[in-house]
Nucleic acid binder design. Sequence first.
DNA 1: CCATATACCTGGCAGC
DNA 2: TGCTGCCAGGTATATG
Length: 271
Amino acid sequence: MPELPEVEVTRRSFADKIVSATIMEVRMGKPLRWPLGASAHSLVGRQVVAVRRRGKYLLLDLDEGLLLLHLGMSGSLNFAPSQVPPGPHDHMDLVTNHGVLRLHDPRRFGAVVWAPSEASPQAQKLLGHLGVEPLDGQFDLAVFAKALKKRQAAIKQVLLAGHDVVGVGNIYASESLFMAGIRPTTRASRLSGPRVAKLHAAIVQVLSRAVQQGGSSLKDFVNAEGRTGYFQLEAAVYGRAGAPCRVCATPIRSLLQGQRTTFYCPTCQKP
DNA sequence: CCATATACCTGGCAGC
DNA sequence: TGCTGCCAGGTATATG
């Protein structure tokens, strides 16, 4: 489900409400991808200082330590004023004096991990290798171009790896490459300077637009207020195999790259 | 170091 | 209907 836009939209939908709240109780459900790394009881009394995002991780800064939240493939958060009995797929409740932050995640690829600081080994194991943030002004074209020159893999897979730029998942990789006119199978190292510049701009534009639209709700994504996103309605290629390209009417094609489906227009996107 | 495959888990859907 | 197989927004880890 959640790529950078969905995680950012989720962050904005509850950050103001939970900041300065005190944790009263933590309830963990079925196991998630990783253990919490602390006893639930030890979090009681901690205060939420800020809610940040790094790549597809949400960081809840506490007055002592922080919580790293990941939504995996099927996760969503909900922030509600009062507690409702948890359903079978609700695997964490962070009960605060401002309301309850609940993680709903049927596939349980998501995670909630406590770390003593962002610089700690626990946090760095998850965040340490992440590439640059695309939307915070630090996404430098020259640095990006230099990084791509070293990558021999297909550009789609380089984007998904998140080592050079974070937040671009399966939907937005296909969409960005369409906007840039680049075939997803092209080796990253072979892209010309102008084409890398187009891709750089396309990534920023696609992700920004998706945030504006509340993310993509392909199936079940909702923000912490329960609202769906609308970007899927304007997807150019994702999920549109066989349908006519919105630019040239050529049927959109799909292929597998590293076990993930990629969508592209064979006419608009050049190798 | 680099690139690719695997594992984790549940639900929905197409096809028989 | 009910079964089977496949697919799904991610990513650390293992393997070549």
